[in-house]
Design a protein around this nucleic acid. Structure first.
Lengths: 241, 241
DNA sequence: CGAGAAATTGAGTCCAATCAACCTCCGTGG
DNA sequence: CCACGGAGGTTGATTGGACTCAATTTCTCG
């Protein structure tokens, strides 16, 4: 962020940002209107269809993105094809790390997605001038760390039944964080993805879903569309304290 | 960190710090001698015997610590007693998050341990004045996140054999990061802890250790003492790409 | 409406859990 | 000094939950 900007009178946020879903939750929420204007000058909005990788092919390798809409899955794959999803990101999270060299993580759109991408060097420059920005990034890392560890407990110590219930509970509480009890939503992941998230096979996921349905914990409509009559019961089935 | 310190001529690091194992790797590595003096004024060195919790009981609830010696295990427990170890920390890592309200993580000394503890408020004050410190903390968080995700792949998709080999490989490469090939070390964890780390039972861990021994991948001496003739073979057994 | 993908269901197998016995290492006290 | 006792670890026999393989069924979408 150019230093002289600090001395300009505060102006309006760019129009495109004012209407932005992530203006208040995402990375941008720590920025002043002036800073936003500067950042916006370098940002690119992109649509990504379900199933496509988010990693810019060859182009600006290093970049940060705000997720405006949709769900991104982060996964790791072994040489023999075994795969594990290690995180899900919902709007208005931002995608920061995966692109940076080192990490062997793949980021892929689970649903149709919209993101707002900034070149890494611009963000890095702003980070060094706006301490709140580093703080914001740090907090997201800590949140992801907590989620990862929570999931380790699920992967290591829960039964297939509990795993599936846990997944449904996770989605129910993230997709549309509204009213407390009755929930209805579309699953952002296919059975294959769910299996890769839970460390199970497709068949086992399917069987456990059926069991939860027969037990009256959930109602299944279109394979993708799920209704949770009582969130409390799902929570219990998930073995969450 | 008191502002006036910035104007004093640079002085020597406190004696106790100069001899400190974590002076160059831990949180303190980003501090100048003056800052170190300030921090040191509030620090407490503690020994913690294996099996004891690190969380100060009631006392200074919020605190950061440098690990000077030993291994700390971070774990989560379910209401019915099922347990999962979600991270191991070695010197000179620092223990930062676990204590902070929210998180339901327990930190416990796996081996006899020495730590250097600072009250949270002092550290927080320094963080706001020394940007490098936030950066350092952020980087550790990112490191832990990478490790957690790596372990999720192990928990979700690897066989018991691969899990145990993975654990041994992890220890071999962290306990004493020296020469590349032949390794010899003491396991910092009991079989029960290893099981809780790998999402297995004690018996399965034991059987897989025996199998690795019979296959000549490792040599076992005192239950705790292990020799790895060829790190490469262990790596292969662990299914690491 | 039809074809292919995604999901469900079923039968049989196998890997890791469970239950149980035994061994080994230590420290302690008779 | 050795017997005892207990914790930690190993080994064996059996069980069971999730995987594999295979056949349908249900969705999706051109």
């Amino acid at each position: 962020m150019d230093t002289y900007l600090k001395h300009l009178p505060e102006c309006e946020a760019p129009g495109v940002c004012r209407a932005c879903e992530a203006r208040h939750g995402g990375l941008c929420s720590v920025l002043t209107a002036n800073q936003l204007t500067e950042l916006n000058r370098h940002s690119i909005r992109r649509r990504i269809d379900a199933g496509n990788e988010v990693i810019g092919q060859g182009e600006t390798v290093g970049s940060y993105s705000n997720i405006l809409k949709g769900v991104i899955k982060l996964s790791k794959m072994m040489a023999d094809g075994r795969q594990q999803i290690v995180g899900l990101q919902f709007a208005p999270d931002f995608l920061g790390r995966p692109f940076l060299g080192e990490s062997t993580i793949t980021a892929e759109a689970a649903t149709d997605t919209e993101i707002c991408t900034f070149p890494r060097n611009v963000v890095d420059r702003m980070v060094s001038e706006v301490p709140d920005m580093e703080r914001k990034l740090h907090n997201q890392s800590l949140k992801e760390l907590d989620e990862a560890r929570e999931w380790m407990l699920t992967l290591g110590r829960k039964t297939a039944q509990e795993k599936v219930a846990n997944f449904l509970y996770l989605i129910a509480t993230h997709i549309d964080p509204d009213r407390g009890n009755a929930q209805t939503f579309d699953l952002p992941l296919s059975r294959a993805d769910i299996a890769d998230f839970l460390g199970l096979t497709i068949e086992t996921v399917s069987r456990q879903m059926t069991k939860l349905r027969k037990d009256g914990v959930i109602v299944i409509e279109n394979n993708r569309h799920v209704i949770v009559p009582k969130l409390e019961r799902l929570r219990d089935a998930a073995g969450i304290d």
